[in-house]
């Protein structure tokens, strides 16, 4: 593996930065491939970008110029654009299917394959959330039950 063998000996911290960047990149990749929530997939993509940013800055340090820094700034810019546009797509997708599920979009499968349906998932052993209880002061206000329920699981 002589891909990098001819570079100058790396400066300190450069290698460590590269390892951190690689770990972040790999983690993001696993998330992209495995997680089905569109938002989480998106976060994982951003995580990959972060890994790349770290790597770029490491190389910038190694070479002693500003290229890596400048590139990271552009990565930030593009990430912002990407986030704006892609989140709009996510919203549209949600508006159409009611789900944030990447597997909800399966129209391009082979014609006679059945739709992927999640197998029966075991019920969640719901632990009722325990909210801190304060000593009641004064008259308890009339709470809207629905509003309370909606906030139960965020």
């Amino acid at each position: 593996m002589n891909l990098l063998a001819d570079v100058v000996a790396p400066a300190p911290l450069v290698l460590d930065g590269l390892v951190v960047g690689a770990i972040l990149f790999a983690l993001g990749l696993v998330g992209i491939l495995a997680r089905r929530n569109l938002i989480v997939m998106f976060l994982c993509a951003e995580l990959m970008l972060q890994g790349i940013s770290v790597s770029l800055v490491s190389w910038s340090r190694h070479h002693g110029d500003w290229g890596g820094h400048v590139l990271v700034i552009f990565v930030l810019t593009v990430a912002a654009c990407e986030a704006a546009v892609a989140l709009v797509f996510v919203l549209q997708a949600f508006a159409r299917t009611g789900r944030l599920d990447a597997a909800a979009w399966q129209s391009l499968r082979e014609s006679n394959l059945s739709r992927t349906i999640d197998r029966e998932l075991p019920a969640i052993d719901t632990v009722p959330p325990k909210f801190p209880k304060l000593t009641p002061a004064g008259v308890e206000p009339a709470a809207d039950e629905d509003a309370l329920l909606e906030r139960e699981h965020v």
């Binding site: 089905r36 938002i39 989480v40 944030l100 599920d101 990447a102 597997a103 139960e152």
Partner: peptide, 18 residues
């Protein structure tokens, strides 16, 4: 976006992976 889109509770697709 999560606030706008996420339904109540833990969705099935969050409980499984691809």
């Amino acid at each position: 976006v999560l606030m706008l889109a996420q339904p109540a509770g833990l969705a099935p697709y969050d409980r499984v992976s691809n």
